[in-house]
Design a binder for these strands. Sequence first.
DNA 1: AAGTTATAGTAGTCATGTCTAACAAGAGGC
DNA 2: GCCTCTTGTTAGACATGACTACTATAACTT
Lengths: 252, 252
Amino acid sequence: MSSETSSIPLTAALEDYLETIYELVRDRRVARVRDIAKARNVKAGSVSPALKRLSDLGLIRYEQREFIELTTEGETAARRVFARHQVLASFLEDFLGLPGESARADACAMEHQLSDEAMDGLVRFLEYLRACPQAGEDLIERFHRCKRVHGDGGECDEGCPAFLPSPQGGGALPEAVSLAFLSPGRAGRVVRVTAQGPLRQGLLDKGVLPGVLITIERLSSGGDRLQIRIGGYAVNLTRREAMGVEVHPVAP
Amino acid sequence: MSSETSSIPLTAALEDYLETIYELVRDRRVARVRDIAKARNVKAGSVSPALKRLSDLGLIRYEQREFIELTTEGETAARRVFARHQVLASFLEDFLGLPGESARADACAMEHQLSDEAMDGLVRFLEYLRACPQAGEDLIERFHRCKRVHGDGGECDEGCPAFLPSPQGGGALPEAVSLAFLSPGRAGRVVRVTAQGPLRQGLLDKGVLPGVLITIERLSSGGDRLQIRIGGYAVNLTRREAMGVEVHPVAP
DNA sequence: AAGTTATAGTAGTCATGTCTAACAAGAGGC
DNA sequence: GCCTCTTGTTAGACATGACTACTATAACTT
């Protein structure tokens, strides 16, 4: 049994150093302070003490000005972080369609936070999408082709018909309408945010997310703005923002 | 135009404070230092200086010992973090099947790292899964029912046949085999990690992930361990671990 | 009115992790 | 042998964000 991963909880910074060393050793056989500093975008003066900390933790072998080597434990820990990075980056790039650059940056930021359980769940999901043809392979292609999701709001050529009635909506109100057409007092469940660009970002940031229940509270100042309620919180939207939200009306 | 999100980059801790205040104000009308301390699991002595920082940044209005109120900017920032939390938590719980507790904890850890682009990508994906019936709704149910993914390794009742040929594999080698049956010098692309429990965790941490190319380097000491190469790095596996990895053999 | 209790704020300490600037160790040139 | 250049180390400063222990308010009690 060699799978003793006692694993002292490392800080994000130390994990980063470890991962950087891992990659440098893999790619160039040796890791020097200089390279680590450049890769992590910090000054050399910050690297030395970090190496000392890693050395004290028994994760690297390092005598001053000598080669930097990962110990067995260090390698295990580095690989763990690296694996998380890989999974996240692949998910963000291949499945969510982020450009590789951003995918890697985001993966770097999140790799330290991902718990074992989340990692496991994500991997199973990827396995499922990759291995079960019924759901997989072309699901992602279809996703990336779906116009309704990726802009210009047209029909989906991939055979996605009109929207389904909302799962919790109960009744039969299958038609999705713009939030702007709901009258005060009525409520709707968000199906999709059709707005694009900054307008979309603003809506997402305001909590207008698919699946969320929104109640119209009132229209103010000539119908140009409307106050809505999302999960117990009052939010103001412009008419333009409201136009960019499709909801399933919910019976009052 | 009120969507000026000039947004000073907040630290994770300050975002957490802001989010906590947001939730307290929503749920109980007022946020006291005491409640914030309890909710964030810190001591009251840590809260006061944090409130001062938030106040200096213009995100809350706070006179000593008075009510704590979010400013408009503070509310915007808090909502943004909260929206990220919601999306991540929903993804982790509803789509990856994590227990609610872990989903929330993981979401808390990651919400500060998620970039605008990743947030957008994730929301689009969720919209797609929710709104396009061809792919959605039962995809997730099927995923959660799929035995091949969730344990005991049986056939999938949901009509997932044998595994597909690997996308990059080129040729016609449709049969997935255990990594343990590959001979030295041969390579395979990981389709699925069938191992369960700690063995599975160990494999994931070693970088044995779906889609990754593995080359068998050699068997050592009576075939009980095998050395493999993953993405330029040598890794050791026990025979038991290797048995728990299904790969598509790749032509040499 | 005086004392008790809950709550909030202050001061001082600590660990991380960064920076800059000064200093040290080798390598190679001349 | 000495100089210079690259590289690495050390020391001191700073920001963040936590802690503990102590002090200050305000609100109840009796």
